[in-house]
Write a protein that binds this DNA or RNA. Structure first.
Lengths: 204, 204
DNA sequence: TTACAATATGAATGATTGCTCACATTTTAT
DNA sequence: ATAAAATGTGAGCAATCATTCATATTGTAA
C-alpha cells in the first residue's frame, strides 16, 4: 500500500473520524439492502441513512459498484474467517471427520448474515470478480485437506473432486439458508450432507 | 421490496403478425443479453434490434420486468421440456440407472442456451417468482421416481433427500456450464456425479 | 495564532431510460 | 365498401439517480 514512515504508529483522530464514516456507510448499505432490497439502494439514500453527506460517500468509494463490491468483499471475508476458525487442527482426522467439520464450518459461515447473503446473491448483478470471492479460498482449503489423504480417496481426479465437493456444500448451504432455514437447526441436514460426501469420497 | 407490477402479458396476440412481433422482441432480448449483457438491455434498444417500435413492445409487455420474466419463463420451459424428453419410460430401472438418466437429462437441459442461462442467473436480479421457475418441476419428477423405489433407498427422509439431490444436480450442472464447460464433454463428470448420488442413495 | 491538510457538505447537473399517448396503418367482419 | 378491431409508430415526457464541485468545517502541527 502507501509507503509507511518508520515511526511509532500514533492514532490519528482524523483517521478515526473518517474510519467511522466509512463504517457508517457500509452499515447503512447493509441495512438498506436487507430491509428494502437492491432496487431501493441509491447512493443518496445510503448517505442519508448513514447520517453522512453524499459527498463524503464519494470520498471513500469512487462509485456505486465499488461500494457494493467493498460490502460483498467484507461479508465474504467474515464468512471465510469464521470458517477457518472452525477448521483449525484437523491434521489427524479421517476423511469423514474432516467432512463433518467442514460442513459445520460452512453452516457457521452462512450464519454470519443470512439476509445480507441472500440479497447479495440473488438481487445483485454479479461481476466476474465478485463471483469468485468465496470460492477460491474454500477450494484451496479443501485441496490441502484432501491431498493429504489421497490414499483414502476413492475418486481418481482430485481437481474434479474438489470442484464437486465445494459446489455441493456451497449450493446446499446456500439453498438451505435461503429456502429451508429450518433445516439448519436440526442435525439431520448436517448428518446427511456429510454422509453423502463421505460415502462418495472414502474407499470401501 | 417494492410492489411488483403485473407480470402478465398486456394483450394476447391474435393475428400472425403480432405473434411474429412478440417473437422478434424475445429474440432481440436474448441477443442483447447474451452479446451485450444486462446493463445494456434497454427497452428502446430491444425494440430497435427487433425491428419494431417501442410502442409495440409495450403493447405486449406491460413493463421491462415482465419482458425479462417472459424470456426467463420461456427458457425454463425449454429446459424442462428437453429434460422430460430424456426421462420417458424409466419405470423399470434401478436407482443408479435412473440417476444416470437424470444426470444426462440435466446436461441436455443446460445445453439449450448456456449463454442465456448464464446471464439470466448471474446478471439479472431474481425475484421470488423467477427463482422457482426451474425448481418445482424437477422436484416433482424426482419425487415420483424416488417414491416408487423407497424400498431401495438408504436415507429415511424423502423430502430432505429430494431437496439435496435436486440442488446438487442443479448446482453442479450450473457451475460446470458456467465455469467448467470442458467438463460437459467428457463422460467423467457425468459418471462421478452419478456415482456420488448413487452411493449415497442406495442401500448396501 | 496561523497555515495547511483532512474531512464534510449538499445543491445542482447531466445523462439515462422506462414508458405514454395521440395518431397511422393494416386486417377482419359484415 | 365500410366500419370496427387489431396492430404499429416514435417523438417526447417525467422521473430517477449517480456523480461533481465549490465551499465550509474540523483537526494537526509549528
Amino acid at each position: 500500500m502507501s509507503p509507511e514512515p518508520a515511526a511509532t504508529p500514533r492514532k490519528q483522530p482524523k483517521q478515526e473520524r473518517s474510519q467511522a464514516t466509512v463504517e457508517a456507510i457500509l452499515t447503512a448499505t447493509t441495512h438498506i439492502l436487507t430491509e428494502n432490497g437492491y432496487d431501493q439502494l441509491t447512493t443518496n439514500r445510503v448517505a442519508e441513512r448513514a447520517g453522512v453527506s453524499i459527498g463524503s460517500l464519494y470520498q471513500y468509494f469512487p462509485n456505486k459498484k465499488a461500494l457494493i463490491f467493498a460490502l460483498a468483499e467484507h461479508h465474504a471475508n467474515e464468512m471465510v474467517r469464521l470458517a477457518q476458525y472452525h477448521l483449525e487442527g484437523l491434521n489427524n482426522l479421517t476423511i469423514p471427520e474432516v467432512l463433518r467439520q467442514i460442513v459445520k464450518a460452512a453452516i457457521a459461515a452462512h450464519a454470519v448474515n443470512p439476509k445480507l447473503h441472500r440479497v447479495l446473491h440473488e438481487q445483485i448483478p454479479h461481476s466476474e470478480v465478485m463471483r469468485r470471492l468465496d470460492e477460491t479460498k474454500m477450494e484451496n482449503m479443501l485441496r490441502s485437506f484432501l491431498a493429504q489423504r489421497s490414499d483414502q480417496l476413492q475418486p481418481k481426479n482430485l481437481e474434479l473432486t474438489i470442484f464437486m465437493v465445494e459446489r455441493t456444500i456451497r449450493a446446499l448451504l446456500h439453498g438451505a439458508t435461503i429456502d429451508r432455514p429450518e433445516l439448519l437447526n436440526t442435525g439431520e441436514f448436517e448428518q446427511e450432507l456429510m454422509a453423502m460426501l463421505s460415502t462418495y469420497l472414502v474407499k470401501r
